[in-house]
Nucleic acid binder design. Structure first.
Lengths: 365, 365
DNA sequence: TTGTAGGCGTTATCAA
DNA sequence: TTGATAACGCCTACAA
């Protein structure tokens, strides 16, 4: 005969559903029923149980519940690096949405390194997260991981980068358009030799930005010059190196594909004694609250970071619930925020100065 | 007779220890033993088991293991707001240390709101995290939460803020010293009417910074003027309001207790048409890679953010392991990084210009 | 060295 | 409406 849970609760140990059952003289089923208020429980019993719960300060052990339920109410999120200022707001968005639905976030940093990413996914799967939000590295998983992903069978939603081999559910931004608008803006500001500091072209969004860059040049009647595009890796250091390489070609305009590389670029520019916006116009990606207070005040293409995270989490949670069926990729719209790093300030973003208008220097107060 | 785990593994369902046992013709004990390599298992059996594991692509279900072990290898981390640029690097530090020891991070944002914090802690406790890293809000927990904390009995380590009612384990920075140095630097740069934009004085570190501010004034022979100190809440908006209030008093120097409030202050300054460093010298807190490339180039007191997180996690993990016994508060050293926002640049931070030296305007190239 | 069976704390099925 | 009791998948005495 299984004696089971007959011991009294040890002091300094949280009480279990058995303690509550004993305290209130009912079965564990009844306790479970009132806790989850399923199955109608008689008023008297319910009150006895509730009293016992309060008395013992009972809280269900969610690990045990997860084992029984096969549901942990936690979702895994893997970003390249939370210290890259782009991601905190994305994570925040995801956490807000998760929280709203009673989910928690298990956060991992992959450093865009495949092996690390694989280890993290494996761990998340072993911990039986209900779903994973992933900004995928470039390379493919090893076969055993694919197998495990299939076995566990939880949904993934991609964030910022697509990777159709895994899933077609993704929340991304319209990077093509963002880059296109950035470069057109540069051209409207009179810049003719426009350079690009790109992300890693194997990353889907870097490719889209590159494409937008190229098409905008063509649309503006500007020549594409291979020497004016440098590939970085979205990190500051690569922007610094790219800046040195690019600036030595004397471009009069630069589109930098993310903020960190812009920082690197500006450092290089300072070392080389070339100034923004006097010597080159600049459009960056991602906006931050502080960009409006420091000089040069960057003109930049803002991506809706919070929304990116929250929509991804919402979609994932829908999938977890088994709702929906066909793949959805949400493409969020970027927004050009014109400030001063192109050499002139448009005070109405809708204003369309005529092409070739010469840059005016604006003194910021 | 408990039939238990006799069913074949359903396709599309991860295999369990029973599947491996059946496949290799041994008992679950043996499988468990080789997985955790405890208890010597004969070479032949071990190889059979390993083969079966590979064949079935078996991975232990960590939820089940946690239930049996009472250990989740997960730690909870609650920060006020991951979107505050101060915290990503702290979280990164914690995650790095956690990962090194095989732990994961469950991340929560409290928004410095007590109720939210309480809900999150309760959830983390229910999910049986092995320990919690906490940047505590100001107010006290409600009694039932205290009870639950006692019942579950996991360790807490405080991050950036102390809160002795909960634990004396903490990793903080020497905020008193940081503020003291900041204000002395301002004084050395010739500033005489020095204002303070403070954090919420109920927060331990804000109080320490306030104290450092006061003592530095005294040490520099400057008068304390109540009208020159404004209390904010570490958010940008409060810095903006504080900036308006403070700047109208015409200080010639300001120490702002964190970066976000500095951003708000600079916005206010711009609106009011007063410039840094021409009209007022400024020392901020927290350094960021980009502060060196934008103007005004902020002189600031850097706090070792990554270390803050990693040391906190290391300490927590020690506690989880039951090692150590007496309380430890680690106080990390801040570092004054002199740039240009005080009106002159010291190229050697050790150089001690004579007191009262008039600020020189430096053109940054 | 290996196997058996009970326990971890829930939920869920099936009777009563 | 309630109560037994078997899962959930793993660990671990205790036995063999």
């Amino acid at each position: 005969m299984p004696v089971g849970h007959n011991r009294r609760r040890k002091p300094g140990k949280a009480s279990s559903i058995y303690d509550v059952a004993r305290e209130s003289g009912v079965s564990v089923f009844t306790v479970s029923a009132v806790v989850n208020n399923k199955s109608h429980v008689g008023k008297k019993l319910r009150e006895r149980v509730e009293a016992a719960i309060r008395k013992l300060n009972y809280r269900p052990n969610l690990i045990a519940r997860s084992l029984a339920n096969r549901r942990t109410h936690t979702i895994g999120m893997i970003v390249p690096d939370i210290a890259n200022p782009f991601f905190p707001m994305v994570v925040r968005g995801a956490e807000d949405a998760a929280q709203k639905h009673g989910y928690n976030l298990l956060l991992c940093n992959s450093d865009d390194n495949l092996e690390k990413e694989e280890r993290e996914i494996e761990l998340l799967l072993s911990k039986r997260v209900d779903g994973i939000l992933l900004t995928k590295t470039v390379e493919d998983f090893r076969p055993s991981l694919w197998q495990m992903i299939k076995d566990v069978g939880i949904p993934f939603v991609l964030v910022m980068r697509t990777y159709p081999k895994l899933t077609n559910d993704a929340v991304i931004t319209d990077d093509y358009l963002g880059a296109y608008n950035a470069v057109c803006h540069l051209a409207r500001a009179g810049r003719r030799r426009i350079g690009l500091i790109s992300g890693p072209l194997k990353v889907s969004n870097a490719m889209a930005r590159w494409q937008g860059f190229c098409d905008a040049l063509r649309a503006q009647g500007l020549a594409f010059d291979q020497k004016l595009v440098v590939e970085g890796d979205y990190r500051t250091e690569s922007g610094f190196r790219a800046g040195h390489a690019l600036l030595s070609q004397r471009p009069d305009g630069i589109y930098a594909a993310n903020y960190l590389m812009t920082v690197g670029l500006l450092k290089a520019a300072e070392e080389m004694g070339v100034a923004c916006p006097d010597d080159f116009g600049l459009v960056s990606f991602d906006d931050y609250p502080w960009l409006g207070v420091f000089r040069p005040k960057l003109t930049t293409v803002e991506l809706p970071k919070h929304q990116l995270g929250s929509e991804a989490a919402e979609l994932l949670i829908e999938r977890i619930g088994g709702r929906r069926t066909k793949a959805v990729v949400k493409k969020l719209q970027p927004e050009l925020r014109v400030r001063e790093s192109c050499g002139f300030a448009l005070h109405l973003s809708k204003a369309q100065p005529e092409r070739g208008l010469r840059a005016r220097q604006l003194q910021s107060t």
